[in-house]
Design a protein around this nucleic acid. Sequence first.
DNA 1: TGGAGGCATGTTATCGATAACATAGAGACA
DNA 2: TGTCTCTATGTTATCGATAACATGCCTCCA
Lengths: 337, 337
Amino acid sequence: MPRKSSVPARMADVAARAGVSAITVSRALRTPDKVSPAVRARIDTAIRSLGYVPNLAAGTLKSQRSRIVAAIVPTLANSIFAETVEGMTEILRQHGYQLLLGNAGYSPETEEALVAAFLGRQPDGLILAGVQHTKRLRTQLRAARVPVVETWELTDAPIDMIVGFSNFEAARRMTLALIERGYRRIAFAGVAPDAEPRSGRRQAGYCDAVAKHGRDPVIFTVAEESGLTIRSGANTMARVLGERADVDAVFFANDFLALGALMECARRGIAVPDKVAVAGFGDFEVAQEVIPALTTVRIPGRDIGRRAASLLVDRLLGRNGENAVDMGFEIVLRDSA
Amino acid sequence: MPRKSSVPARMADVAARAGVSAITVSRALRTPDKVSPAVRARIDTAIRSLGYVPNLAAGTLKSQRSRIVAAIVPTLANSIFAETVEGMTEILRQHGYQLLLGNAGYSPETEEALVAAFLGRQPDGLILAGVQHTKRLRTQLRAARVPVVETWELTDAPIDMIVGFSNFEAARRMTLALIERGYRRIAFAGVAPDAEPRSGRRQAGYCDAVAKHGRDPVIFTVAEESGLTIRSGANTMARVLGERADVDAVFFANDFLALGALMECARRGIAVPDKVAVAGFGDFEVAQEVIPALTTVRIPGRDIGRRAASLLVDRLLGRNGENAVDMGFEIVLRDSA
DNA sequence: TGGAGGCATGTTATCGATAACATAGAGACA
DNA sequence: TGTCTCTATGTTATCGATAACATGCCTCCA
């Protein structure tokens, strides 16, 4: 039966116009080499003349494949996670997958709620930032049998696949580099470990390094409500300068914090690194442009996204490759420390 | 018929366990007040004990409502668009909608391809950045009868709804402010107008303002491949200083460019604003922290996202409100100009 | 006391694509 | 020439939820 032209065309309409059955249209779209060129041409013409758009909800329902990948990140704004998301969309798009995005702040509970909402879409895969999840989330994910990639950290007990680097090791190595450069009293500044797990792992790496050299850690905790911002970096630097005249280097958990610290020093006319050295984490674009250029840890954020998506795609294509990838990091020594 | 416990539970399984029919479960989930409290409680128990997750593909197929909103932005990385996306997810989540995200670079063709791919998901709405789209895209969207919100600009001929501000007017006002402050020879630096339409509109606003004062525009075009980055801002500033000693103020199309310019001046020991003034666009976080603090145009990026999502949600709920919202801008005069 | 109206719940058909199975016809080869 | 294989295409049933319509029962008031 023909339908009013005001309602969208269905596959059956395309089939009728091309003089074939619906399944042949379906094949022409999904596995073109199983359809003869002549028929394929007729179908293409019909599709164009009807403006046909396949209803993926119907396809998903029957085939149990949604071609959707869901990703959950803590935040996009002013963050290197945005690059990771771009890296993911890039690879996923190449393989015909689309990205359903959620941002969870730094709350495992919100993450859990988002995953619950996303699972109803039958995503073919899931990408999460971090390895700190609620117990219920882990249970739910195993039950759903969805391929999962965790990112931005490493752990011995991933849910499934993982693409990241060792925040602990990166911070440890940066701290050792600062020690090697001759700084005697190195402080660490980040948010509370339970508020942001990655920052917490970095703090632990710092503690390990100073302990190895028989020194006491000096830790400044950034107020949680202000977060990893330039402004809170400046505030924290002000506290360090006011409270601990003996500190000769500060290692910040994030480049924005470090940038704020540099600005605070500039405002006060304090020489960096002569009076106090500053190091950051992330190697954001601004790090190499600021004066003095920022010593920091380079993290391949975009590549983490690309690689996470690749692992997922490989799994979905039945190609079984690695399950855990350490993307590494790089200590970048510049002028600020 | 009962199913193996290894396959996910369906609504019928929940219904059986709760001793009701499937439709009652459906109602308990979507319109709980139409189900008696006692039955609702039994259903809730059944859902939890089976770990039931509704299959939204099935629901979408029958109800023709996907509860998905698709958004396409040029880029997320290092960009204020990321805040807009966060604003959108925030509002959409409150109303049970999920965000399908695409990034199109600055290519209308990629945007068109993304929309085509997204439409198959039957999105309940679509949010686009900008108002420059291919003709085919406009046709396709009208045919699909999807509510559309364009953002970040204004136009007399929106596809449907629009939430933005006037890039032209914002740049014009900033230029006038610079003139008023006494700068005689003001240059503009941005990417080529056809590469980034928003930057192009800003350039036009600048030209209008200088022309009103009988002056000739001085335009520096940032190399397209490097884009709106700190580094290309520094390079552009170097060109300005080398080629146009008469220029006493430079208005950059973006805060990152302006930031790079400030850094280049610092490296060369050139006083800002005494020797040359610098203004930016966007009021990114770094603008108020850098030294000298950056004179710029504040754009409510997050609010644009929130408002765009609200307009869409209102439309979907049958509440017909405004179709065009000017979110305005604010000239922020700081130390750099 | 009876019927109108409203609430809670049920029955049936359906959304549109595709997996699984079926079949027709062409060519290959003994 | 018969049968075997392979390719191109078709038929049927189905994925899981929900719209539309149906029904039973309770309450209220004339």
